[in-house]
Amino acid sequence: MRNVSDLLREADPLGYEPLPTTEEWRRARQRILGAPPARAQRPRRRIVVAGVLALALTGTVAAYWSRAAVDVIAAVRFEARLAEQIPGPGLREVSLPGSIGRIYLHRETIVSNSDIARAEVVQGTGVSRFNISVTFTAEGAVKMLKATQGHLGRPVAILLDSDVVMAPVVKSPISGSAMITGNYTRTEAERIVNGIVGR
């Protein structure tokens, strides 16, 4: 004896139909990224498609070159990694700067220099003199979000040149940007910013 719920579950197309392929997603993504910001006069479809393709091609080439450049030139290596407050297998113990605390680092890097779209020096308040604001690329933001949304209440470590400079506890998933609130001088903060983005 079957009820409405059983019939629906049996008929659910997602039970037997494949999801769109990566290629289909990529094409949909391109079309969407090419959509105009406001409802304006609707341009001809062929022109839009050509424009999207041209933009995508330019973007891909530019991203490839800028990424390669960042990897080579970056003078300060930036990394974010998940960490734990208790030791565990495969975790590396490190001391926190300016305190007696210790954390235990995961091996995998979530994001690094090539995932940063821009970094800038921001004047702090109180004890923080100058901070560093880091904005991730779209891919970087997704990586951070995916990593941190399952890591609430546990630390994420920010490393500069392999030194942990801070390890705040994740209170909500991190995505678009992060602020490195070190008590830096302007010169030091600028050096790091320039080093991170490889200028």
Binding site: S128, M166, P168, A178, Y184
Partner: peptide, 12 residues
């Protein structure tokens, strides 16, 4: 790079 003392807040 010498790590300067940092706060533990991460304004996101």
């Amino acid at each position: 790079m010498s790590a300067a003392p940092v706060s533990v807040a991460l304004p996101v």
